[in-house]
């Protein structure tokens, strides 16, 4: 069975959930093999193996890690040449999509981004499913050209453990061209950790909008009682109430959690584009005519400043 390469997304060696989802998806197409760029491959071999990877191709070179997407695309192209995998899967992050874009051109391969499902296609190649036009259509595509390159939307594939032992780490001698090093990160300021889960990976997201009037305290309190990530609508971000990195919607991040709670958000198309594929949707809004109520599984017409704290208190009480 041919290998399926999965580019590992990790933070200082800690493998992110999106990678485990990609390994689970890769097993449907062939034999998953992880590609680990940066330090920490040995430490990650166990978790990668437990989720189906038999091999970890480890690229330790700091040159690759410090120079954004171009060198990683070169390394992947080199591995595609050497191993002729059945496909390459990457996370649908900004970097993941750009590495995928460069890889597709380098290897003359077809590309699909933001897939929510993959399967082998009849007659070869990979069949993908995507959700498009603000979640209003489901599109099935086939990539048969070259070595299909697919980026997976986080939270789309349930993670499965295969019970495999630690993957075998195989060091890769990466050749990085000077051209690939032209763009480099000169400064990196870490943001203070919120202690909350990452927006794209969270099982529950609680978002606030114009209706908060800039006070996100009740939104954050509800989020914390549920162990959720906090998001914001474009109106709230444009008003400067919450950082742009938390913006859910067409021009921000697209989320697909088990539960999405929209507080004080009207539900314009721009916002719906980023949350419509959530499994369960709940809204709290003063305006009974708000379009968000057309989407909800449960809605409360009321003031978020009284409804949210009461819900938070009740949830905390139930959790004991």
């Amino acid at each position: 069975m041919a290998e399926v390469l999965v580019l590992v997304d990790h933070v200082d060696g800690d493998v992110r959930k999106s990678t485990l989802e990609a390994l689970t998806a890769a097993a449907r197409l062939g034999e998953p093999a992880a590609v680990f760029v940066g330090a920490g491959a040995q430490g990650a071999a166990e978790v990668l193996g437990r989720h189906g990877a038999t091999t970890v191709y480890a690229v330790e070179s700091p040159e690759v890690a410090e120079h954004l997407v171009a060198p990683t695309a070169e390394v992947l192209a080199q591995l595609v040449q050497e191993h002729s995998p059945a496909a390459v899967l990457l996370p649908s992050s900004n970097d993941g999509k750009e590495i995928a874009a460069r890889l597709a051109i380098k290897t003359s391969s077809g590309l699909v981004t933001d897939a929510v499902d993959v399967a082998p296609a009849d007659g070869g190649g990979v069949q993908t499913v995507q959700s498009v036009f603000a979640g209003s259509y489901t599109v099935t595509s086939v990539v048969a050209q070259g070595c299909p390159v697919v980026t997976l939307k986080p939270n789309s594939v349930p993670v499965e453990e295969t019970g495999g032992g630690a993957a075998t780490v195989q060091a890769v001698d990466a050749q990085v061209s000077d051209a690939a090093k032209a763009a480099r990160i000169t400064e990196r300021k870490e943001k203070a950790a919120s202690g909350r889960p990452s927006l794209t990976e969270a099982a529950i997201v609680v978002s606030g909008g114009r209706g908060t009037g800039g006070d996100f305290a009740p939104v954050e309190a509800l989020a914390d009682s549920l162990g959720a990530a906090v998001g914001a609508s474009r109106a709230a971000v444009d008003a400067g109430w919450y950082p742009h990195s938390s913006q859910v919607g067409q021009t921000g991040v697209s989320v697909s959690p088990q539960l999405y709670v929209a507080a004080g958000i009207s539900g314009a198309i721009q916002h719906r584009a980023g949350m419509q594929t959530s499994k369960t949707i709940v809204a709290v809004n003063k305006d009974p005519e708000a379009p968000i109520f057309e989407l909800v599984d449960y809605g409360v017409v009321g003031d978020l400043f009284t409804v949210l704290p009461q819900a938070t208190e009740e949830i905390s009480r139930r959790k004991g």
Partner: peptide, 28 residues
């Protein structure tokens, strides 16, 4: 095209669920 769409289907509209009006117990 190196990737081609073989099928499109309109996502069934979400059926609106229950919407209640807060009468002091909306949060609960």
């Amino acid at each position: 095209a190196w990737s081609r769409v073989v099928e499109v289907s309109a996502r069934p509209p979400r059926t609106a669920g229950e919407v209640v009006t807060d009468e002091g117990d909306g949060g609960s």
